[in-house]
Design a protein around this nucleic acid. Sequence first.
DNA 1: ATCCCGAGGG
DNA 2: CCCTCTGGAT
Length: 215
Amino acid sequence: MQKKERFRRFIEYFTEHYPDPKTELHFSNPYELLVAVILSAQCTDKRINQISPALFARFPEAESLAAASVEEVFSYIRSVSYPNNKAKHLVGMANALMNRFGGEIPATVDELQTLPGVGRKTAHVILSIVYNEPTMAVDTHVFRVSHRLGLAPLTANTPLAVEKALMAHIPKQHVPKAHHWLILHGRYVCLARSPKCEECALKEFCKYFEKVVRS
DNA sequence: ATCCCGAGGG
DNA sequence: CCCTCTGGAT
């Protein structure tokens, strides 16, 4: 099947079944989203949502988080992965927001990536959700599912390469939604260890299903 | 033993 | 390019 046809079917299916996908992270403003996304690295959204209410209540905005001690922040996030690194990142990030951006969340990839704990993936999530820009954040789910469905070639072996492969074939108006579609599919159907191929609506053109499951 | 919406450093 | 960080679920 041609690549163009793969993308067409992918978009068609999810437009039909998930017309308005959203992140499962809980947040009520851009600052909370940024904190939640930084915490979400190598950790499930469900766990972040368990600890974020107390964290946001204690540090409601960048100013209070910037003034906090790393030890106290650590005490709120000890149950997420890499709590030491993330506590340092959060305090450093909040200080950077206060010192360089007037406490506001910057709106460009380059500026966002200067914040401690914010890489390309996190920056693109913020740009997509907060500023409604057609950026494709490539995380572990997007990376894996894109390869399995044949939306990105296996030679695209870095997140940036997968990002470019996807951006070349997904119409701009579908890019923010496609990001969430790939994550939802990866989280609930196209699991990393034992994917639920039998209940996958896209298995008929899936390269992984063709190669691994049928053999 | 492997994975979860990665980032920073060597 | 590699390595480290490092809690909880499966």
